[in-house]
Structures are given as structure tokens and as C-alpha cells.
């Protein structure tokens, strides 16, 4: 038994020491590959340009996305538009729109105005099967009004669908809301 007193701590120590001798390299950070930090909707009619940007640089961190609108949306106007998705945690920022367009049959962008907002949006580009994709849009504004404009990107929606989120199903990759005003 006397020997045991020495054997036990020796074994324990040796195991601990063997394990302690690992080099203390600090782990490398993970930059989220798929995260979408930024949604940019660009609407153009001649010289009238409206840019809606939603940016959330901390992803699922505690800060909410910040929405900004540059330019004035005019009533009774037809805008040619693009919807872009970016990952700005990387430098230079990654254009996620390319991936979405590459996998066009698995994605769809929905532009949904609230009922008080006089605005209609139509997808102007399609996927390989002829169903709307929506990274390119045409927006027609009606009379002066204001309301919420939602941009949703769905992954693996049912295609074709009736244009509503409920019918589309799939998973929400992006859902951002803008407070929009249409002026005269």
C-alpha cells in the first residue's frame, strides 16, 4: 500500500503533463461564409435613383439591422430595379446575389408592400424553369402614400407559387422591412 501513495499521484501527474504539453496555439476566428449582412434595393428611373439599404454588420448579434433610404420615391413612376445581397463581414464584401442567381431554381425574392403603400413590384428575371426569381424587378408606384416595404428571400420555395409567402413556403434567408414614403 505504501507504494500506492506514490504511484497514484505519479500516474495522474504524468497523464496531466502529457496533455499539458500541447502547444497553446490560439484558435483561428471563423468568418461566417453564408451570412447576409446587407440588402440593397436599387430603383432607377432616368435620373431619379432610390437606394434602400438594410445593413446588420453583427449578423445574429444583439444589434438590429439599420435601414437607410437615399433618394425620393415618386408617385406614378416605373422603376427598374435590382435586389442585391452582400456579406460585408468579409473584405472585399462578398456578392451573395451571384450565388442566388446561380441557384436560381432554389431561390425567390419577394417584394411585399403593405396595404397602404401604393406600389406594385414584378420580378423581371426568371429561373431556368421560367419561374420568377426576382433579383431584377420592376416597381410601379401609385398615388402618394406611405407604408412598409418588405423584401424577403426564400430558399427552396415551392415553385411555381402564387406570389405569396404562405404559398411559397421554404426557408427565410432574408426578411427586411423599410419604412417607405411615395411623394408627389
Amino acid at each position: 500500500m505504501k507504494n500506492l501513495k506514490f504511484i497514484i499521484p505519479t500516474i495522474l501527474l504524468s497523464v496531466l503533463l502529457i496533455n499539458c504539453s500541447d502547444d497553446d496555439d490560439t484558435p483561428e476566428p471563423v468568418n461566417e461564409e453564408e451570412v447576409i449582412t446587407t440588402v440593397i434595393v436599387n430603383l432607377v428611373n432616368g435620373t431619379n435613383t432610390v437606394t434602400l439599404t438594410s445593413r446588420d454588420t453583427d449578423g445574429d448579434g444583439p444589434n438590429p439591422p439599420v435601414e437607410t433610404i437615399v433618394g425620393e420615391m415618386k408617385s406614378g413612376t416605373t422603376y427598374t430595379g435590382t435586389v442585391r445581397f452582400l456579406n460585408e463581414t468579409e473584405t472585399p464584401s462578398e456578392e451573395i446575389t451571384d450565388e442566388v442567381e446561380e441557384e436560381d431554381d432554389e431561390h425567390q425574392v419577394f417584394v411585399i408592400p403593405s396595404s397602404g403603400l401604393n406600389l406594385t413590384s414584378t420580378a423581371t428575371n426568371n429561373d431556368g424553369n421560367g419561374n420568377p426569381l426576382g433579383t431584377k424587378i420592376s416597381v410601379v408606384t401609385g398615388a402618394m402614400s406611405s407604408g412598409n416595404l418588405n423584401i424577403t428571400l426564400r430558399h427552396e420555395p415551392n415553385k411555381p407559387n402564387d406570389g405569396t409567402l404562405a404559398d411559397a413556403g421554404g426557408e427565410t434567408d432574408v426578411s427586411v422591412n423599410f419604412d417607405v414614403e411615395i411623394i408627389d
Binding site: I36, T37, T38, V39, S54, D56, G59, D60, P62, P64, P65, T152, T172, D173, V174, S175, V176
Partner: peptide, 9 residues
């Protein structure tokens, strides 16, 4: 509920 670009979680 937290707001993100992906909607609310």
C-alpha cells in the same frame, strides 16, 4: 425577439 437580416429570431 431579435431582429436580423434573416428576420426575427
Amino acid at each position: 425577439v431579435q431582429q436580423t437580416v434573416r428576420g426575427n429570431f
